[in-house]
Write a protein that binds this DNA or RNA. Structure first.
Length: 273
DNA sequence: CAATCAACCTGGGTGC
DNA sequence: TGCACCCAGGTTGATT
């Protein structure tokens, strides 16, 4: 579910709400969500640590804790991370609760794919983090870098955009939207794109991600922000999840195909093969 | 190297 | 109403 704009939204909200609070304990309802350390050690290791800051890397959330520890969270498809001060009954599918000195932070995840890691240092030993490519909204994601990656890959461009080692944080929604904005068919081979198309796509990626953030994320199914509220970017999507509806640019019916196992939406007129 | 598929899960939607 | 089946903002690992 959550891609870069959704995780960024949660990060910003949590940074404002829980920075400086102390974790007084954790309740684990589903042990497998703890990737590291052993679930039995998790509670005692995190207890008493203060949240010094909240960061994001790709689709990962990173909580800097006192004592040189880092809590890493990945929400995968349906994970929700919600901070609340009213301690009502926990919703279904809540698998982990952090008790804070003010309020609580809960991980609720219908599909149970989300994972958390509690590691020393800044999360450096979470190998999934080390492999990530550049942040698309940082200066590290240059046009030169992106064009070079395109040039040396025969993969379909959509698969390349979803590869977190190429660029971190793009998921199925924003890949479709970026390709549409750049006028590139999702099944094109990366190395077949012209320099002009590559530049347009580089620009489109940043554009659609910034828009998604401005709208506090896309809520199609399960996504809610750190306050439990839906985002609004679903109302601004041009192709994703809109099969059969007219393209906002040209009125052509939007098509849906399966690419690399993922539902893929595009406008056959704006994005010719 | 690239593509496909199964796994990991639950629940909503659809068609018979 | 029931049931079988497909689908879903992700990622990994096995196989072809």
């Amino acid at each position: 579910m959550p891609e870069l704009p959704e995780v960024e939204t949660i990060k910003e909200q949590l940074a404002a709400k829980i920075t400086g609070l102390t974790i007084t304990g954790a309740t684990i309802y589903l042990e497998k969500v703890i990737a590291v350390p052993a679930p039995a050690r998790f509670g005692e290791t995190i207890r008493g640590r203060t949240i010094l800051g909240v960061n994001r890397r790709g689709k990962f959330l990173l909580f800097d804790l006192s004592g040189g520890y880092c809590l890493v969270v990945h929400l995968r498809m349906s994970g929700q991370l919600v901070y609340e001060t009213e301690a009502g009954p926990l919703p279904r599918h809540t698998h982990l609760v952090f008790h804070l000195d003010r309020g609580r932070l809960r991980l609720t995840d219908l599909r149970q794919f989300g994972r958390v890691w509690l590691v020393p240092a800044a999360g450096a030993e979470v190998k999934e983090l080390r492999k990530l490519g550049p942040e698309p909204l940082s200066s590290a994601f240059t046009e030169e870098y992106f064009l070079a990656r395109l040039q040396k890959s025969r993969r379909r461009i959509k698969a390349l955009l979803l590869d977190q080692e190429v660029v971190a944080g793009i998921g199925n929604i924003y890949a479709d939207e970026a390709l549409h904005a750049a006028g590139v068919h999702p099944a094109r081979r990366a190395s077949d794109l012209s320099v002009r198309e590559g530049k347009a796509l580089h620009h489109a990626i940043q554009e659609v991600l910034r828009e998604g953030i401005a709208h506090r994320g896309t809520s199609i199914r399960d996504y809610v922000d750190a306050g439990g509220e839906e985002g609004s970017h679903q109302h601004f999507l041009k192709v994703h999840n809109r099969a059969g509806r007219p393209c906002p640019e040209c009125g052509t019916r939007i098509e849906k195909v399966k690419l690399g196992g993922r539902g893929t939406y595009f406008c056959p007129r704006c994005q010719p093969l």
